[in-house]
Computed example of a mutant assay.
Amino acid sequence: MDSKQNVGSPDRDRINVNEDYELQYWSEKFNVSRNRLKEAVQAVGTSVKDVQEYLNK
């Protein structure tokens, strides 16, 4: 479970699109829009590895 106090480093294995700071972090990291990130998570789940593979297709 993500700690609300530790907003500087999101969980490195999972993406929680319901947390605004994670949505911002991961969309910037993958250089995609927030909606594209949400679409990827909906398609393959919250695993960072799976989302990255999906976005690289």
Rank of each mutant, 00 (worst) to 15 (best):
G8L: 12
N6C: 11
K38E: 13
S47V: 03
S3P: 08
D2V: 09
V51S: 02
Q52C: 02
K4N: 13
R36C: 05
Q52K: 00
V48M: 02
V17K: 03
T46H: 04
E39H: 12
N16H: 06
G8I: 14
S3R: 07
S27V: 14
K4D: 15
T46P: 02
D20M: 09
Y54L: 02
E22Y: 06
G45P: 12
M1S: 05
L37E: 08
N35G: 09
E19L: 15
Y54V: 01
N31Q: 11
L55T: 05
S3F: 11
I15T: 07
V41C: 03
D20Q: 11
R14E: 05
E22N: 09
M1Y: 03
D20V: 10
E19P: 03
V44Q: 01
S27N: 15
R36Y: 10
N35L: 08
D11I: 11
Y54E: 00
N18G: 09
N16P: 07
T46K: 06
D20R: 12
N6E: 15
D50E: 09
A43I: 08
D20G: 06
S27L: 10
E22L: 03
Q42F: 03
Q24I: 13
V44K: 02
E53V: 13
M1T: 10
V51L: 00
R34A: 12
N18K: 06
T46Q: 07
E39F: 11
V17M: 04
Y21C: 05
Y25H: 09
Q5V: 15
Y21V: 13
S47R: 11
S33H: 15
Y54Q: 00
Q42S: 06
N6H: 10
V44R: 00
E53S: 04
L23H: 10
L23I: 14
L55M: 02
S47M: 02
V48A: 03
E22R: 07
D11G: 04
N6M: 11
P10N: 04
S3V: 08
K57Y: 01
K4A: 14
Q24E: 12
I15N: 00
G45I: 10
Y21D: 13
F30D: 08
L37T: 04
Q42P: 01
D13T: 05
K29W: 13
E28K: 12
S47E: 07
N6V: 06
W26Q: 02
V32E: 14
V44P: 00
E19T: 11
N35Y: 05
D20W: 12
N6K: 08
N56W: 01
N6I: 14
N18T: 11
S47F: 05
M1I: 08
A40H: 08
L23E: 12
E53W: 03
S33K: 08
Q5P: 07
M1D: 06
